[in-house]
Write a protein that binds this DNA or RNA. Sequence first.
DNA 1: TAATATCGACAATATGGTTGTCTATATAGT
DNA 2: ACTATATAGACAACCATATTGTCGATATTA
Lengths: 175, 175
Amino acid sequence: MSTDSSAPKPPAATPGAGPPADPPGFELPLRLFLGFRTLIDELHAELARQGHPDVRPMHGFVMQAIGTRGTTAAELGRRLGVSKQAAGKTIDALERIGYVERGTDPGDARRKIVRLTERGTDSLVRSARIFEDLRAGWAKTLGEDRLRALESDLRLVTPPDLFRLDVPGWFGGYQ
Amino acid sequence: MSTDSSAPKPPAATPGAGPPADPPGFELPLRLFLGFRTLIDELHAELARQGHPDVRPMHGFVMQAIGTRGTTAAELGRRLGVSKQAAGKTIDALERIGYVERGTDPGDARRKIVRLTERGTDSLVRSARIFEDLRAGWAKTLGEDRLRALESDLRLVTPPDLFRLDVPGWFGGYQ
DNA sequence: TAATATCGACAATATGGTTGTCTATATAGT
DNA sequence: ACTATATAGACAACCATATTGTCGATATTA
């Protein structure tokens, strides 16, 4: 990580220690992100324990986007909101570690269909189970109805589309 | 974005159209991320309208981490979980667009203190107000108490630290 | 059959990040 | 006071991820 590493001191998020009558507006987005990050990190820790140490967070979403019926690089790029070249490179990486394979399309000689291998499917099946377990953990902490409320509330304030993340370079940037 | 752009067809998230008795586990993390992304996108759209078109999502967090008292590149790197060199480059970028400035530390000739300029502070003040407004928008949709519940529930299932995002390369990756 | 569009590949480039090295300065141990 | 060690910041080299632009092969449509 850092060239020179030492303990960082956490900056005071809320200087006053009193009851946070009105939480500062920027806590909400941060909590949402932390929730996301926590779940994803725990998923991949468990996935590694279950024999999939090489899957990176992005891979799961990519494989999910590939789906059981397979797809092509260009189509995948469109789904994920990145260029077909970038999608192609991700497919290369997944192929290298044995999670997808490329085949030809008998009906269209231009297309190369990308399909999940057995191993790829296995990682997806396990991911689904692990996510259920993680959700169950939250349910134990919050109660099933509070969690359901949280989910349904989030559904109300987020776009319905679910799949359009296009995370790649979205956040960062020197500029 | 894509070299060749056309409308992507959203893959069916829930094949059956009946009542989702048990939402698939992977909806929760996605919703959390979408909530985060929605807020951040709306923040920056509004920020651009208010005279800060060049601020990128990362910049806000960096400036927040710099704080009103200023800091140094190395310290900033530790806070954000990146190398001091990377932090230095981000500071370069922020300096170039006039949001921070470098000064010397009278008590330690090695250190160069990075401080927010007036413009930098202004962007932070406006961000805070915009976040409050966005939160108010959610409160209007969900009701203030449901939103409070959502926030407090998230606080229960996320690490207390708030600031440790180290987003940089975390998600992505061919590998 | 000619015009146009799409697929996948390749090359060049941009960006954001890393490590490694260097000099200057501080600080602790003797 | 002197030496050893640690830290700050700058610079260079490199790596990873994504971009645009181009190309030949194949499909599709007029």
